[in-house]
Amino acid sequence: MFAHRLPDFQKTKYARFMNHRVPAHKRYQPTEYEHAANCATHALWIIPSILGSSNLYFLSDDDWETISAWIYGLGLCGLFVVSTVFHTISWKKSHLRTVEHCLHMSDRMVIYFFIAASYAPWLNLRELGPWASHMRWLVWIMASVGTIYVFFFHERYKLVELLCYTVTGFLPALVILSMILFHYMSYF
């Protein structure tokens, strides 16, 4: 439920939890509650992501599994650490505008690399057909392009940024079509 859609008597009830929608060219400014929730929910997952990544590493049986465990683990841990640092600085040290801006860009950039890292085990360890070998590199190229986009156009074109995240997250999954065609053709 969004506060701007509520009747006036209910808006005050939710006002401290959520701010009004901002224009497309402005950055959303979280409330104190949102800052606290962002810090807590991101920090909460740092230790489990380190433990889970370590477990993947120690359960690896060969070089490809070890590499995939490292890539995924670094992507996952990096996501939560960078995001926690950004949200904490943004909340408690908002007077450090340049640092906050750099961390906000880093927070957005690390999402691209987490998406790419999430595909690493799947693309490296499964027989997915001929597209998979190309997609292993394409997903990292897309993450790099997304990072460059954030660096140059941070917070300017939010719809384009959303589209970049969506394409980076969805396009590598199309490898499953290659897998289906590859296995289907192998029967003939």
Rank of each mutant, 00 (worst) to 15 (best):
Q29K: 13
R5Q: 13
C39I: 14
W140S: 06
V167M: 05
H35I: 07
A173H: 08
T31D: 06
K93L: 14
F58D: 09
F80W: 04
L181I: 15
F153L: 10
L51E: 05
I46P: 00
F17M: 08
R126L: 15
L59K: 13
F153V: 05
E161V: 09
F80A: 01
S49L: 02
N38R: 02
L51V: 11
A120Q: 02
A120S: 02
T166L: 14
W122R: 03
M179Q: 13
V167P: 00
E155V: 09
L128E: 03
L163K: 13
Y119F: 03
L6N: 04
F80M: 02
F182I: 10
T66I: 11
I50Q: 01
Y112R: 01
N55E: 12
A40M: 12
T166E: 11
G73V: 02
W64A: 10
Y149I: 07
V110L: 05
F113S: 05
S118K: 04
L162F: 14
Y28N: 03
R136M: 11
A40L: 14
P7D: 04
Y184G: 07
M1I: 13
L159G: 13
A15K: 08
R16G: 13
G78S: 03
L123C: 02
K92T: 07
Y184E: 09
S186A: 15
Y57Q: 10
M179G: 10
A116N: 05
I89V: 15
Y57S: 13
G146H: 03
L181A: 12
S94A: 13
K11F: 03
S83D: 00
P121M: 09
L171F: 09
E34H: 02
F114T: 11
I115M: 09
V145Q: 05
M135H: 02
G78I: 04
E161A: 07
A43H: 00
L181G: 05
S54Y: 15
P7G: 04
N38C: 06
A143H: 01
T168S: 09
T31Q: 01
E65A: 12
F9L: 12
E100M: 08
L123R: 00
I176D: 06
A116I: 05
L159V: 13
T41C: 08
F182T: 05
Y157V: 11
I67N: 07
K13G: 09
